[in-house]
């Protein structure tokens, strides 16, 4: 059942998200084409390049904002609005439902990150081609990070945990908002802000103790948070569903 849910999850979310990603890559490509002669060329093309770079930066912001917005809207409409009448009458457990949404949201977040890197690479490779080769830059960056004891594997794990717990935090806030009889969205937003404050207070406190290993700390803290949010969402969906 998880496979089938994922299929429809991707079908539904790809519709608004893919055009945003495609648009960003297209803008990066245009920017790259106009700056093909290197940095010196920028002066001559002036305003056009400026506008393109502005639009491109805007689309990078759009990637992150819109990806999360679509993830939130999808969960809200499919779990609590009219579509929920179908979602909650499918012969599927609450856990499978949550995981299908979480996995799809995670894949989109990761895809958004890749689009961000790829489009950045397209733009930058055009502008500074004469000065560096891109792979040299990566090499330099890794060398630098290694020299200060940066653990790439730990960083990847820690990023995965933060992304998952970040998505689950949205879900938990939306679910708690549903417990209210009115102003459900407003309450969800307030709950989310409250969660953010609480999380930053706790993480700051612990970071003082574990300042020597911030990545290890983040990995454990995000995992613990993620599990907490998951069980809040699960409990509400199992015992407190009240569709309007």
């Amino acid at each position: 059942m998880l496979g089938k849910l994922l299929k429809y999850e991707f079908l539904a979310t790809a519709r608004p998200i893919l055009p945003v990603y495609a648009g960003t890559l297209l803008l990066a490509l245009f920017t790259r084409l106009l700056t093909i002669g290197g940095i010196d060329n920028i002066d001559r093309l002036g305003a056009t390049v400026g506008l393109l770079i502005f639009l491109y930066v805007l689309s990078l912001v759009a990637i992150f904002v819109l990806t999360f917005l679509f993830i939130i809207i999808r969960f809200y409409t499919n779990m609590f609005r009219d579509q929920a009448y179908l979602t909650h009458t499918l012969p599927v457990s609450v856990d499978t439902l949550i995981w299908s949404k979480l996995i799809a949201a995670f894949v989109w977040s990761f895809a958004g990150f890749l689009v961000f890197l790829l489009s950045g690479w397209i733009v930058v490779s055009g502008i500074i081609r004469e000065y560096f080769f891109l792979f040299d830059i990566w090499h330099e960056i890794f060398f630098l990070l290694n020299s200060i004891g940066f653990d790439l594997f730990l960083w990847v794990l820690s990023m995965i945990a933060s992304t998952l717990s970040g998505i689950l935090m949205f879900y938990a806030a939306l679910s708690i908002g549903q417990l209210s009889k009115s102003a459900k969205i407003l309450i969800a937003v307030l709950v989310y802000l409250g969660m953010l404050v609480a999380v930053s207070i706790v993480s700051t406190m612990f970071l003082f103790v574990m300042w020597e290993a911030p990545l290890v700390f983040n990995l454990f803290f995000s995992t613990a948070q993620g599990i907490g949010w998951y069980f809040i969402v699960r409990a509400i969906l199992r015992h407190k569903v009240n569709l309007e």
């Binding site: 009219d82 579509q83 929920a84 009448y85 009458t89 499918l90 599927v92």
Partner: peptide, 14 residues
């Protein structure tokens, strides 16, 4: 849910 077929009074299809 496997055996109940429910028609609600609203549109539940995307």
């Amino acid at each position: 849910k496997r055996v109940v077929s429910y028609l609600p009074e609203r549109t539940y299809l995307a």
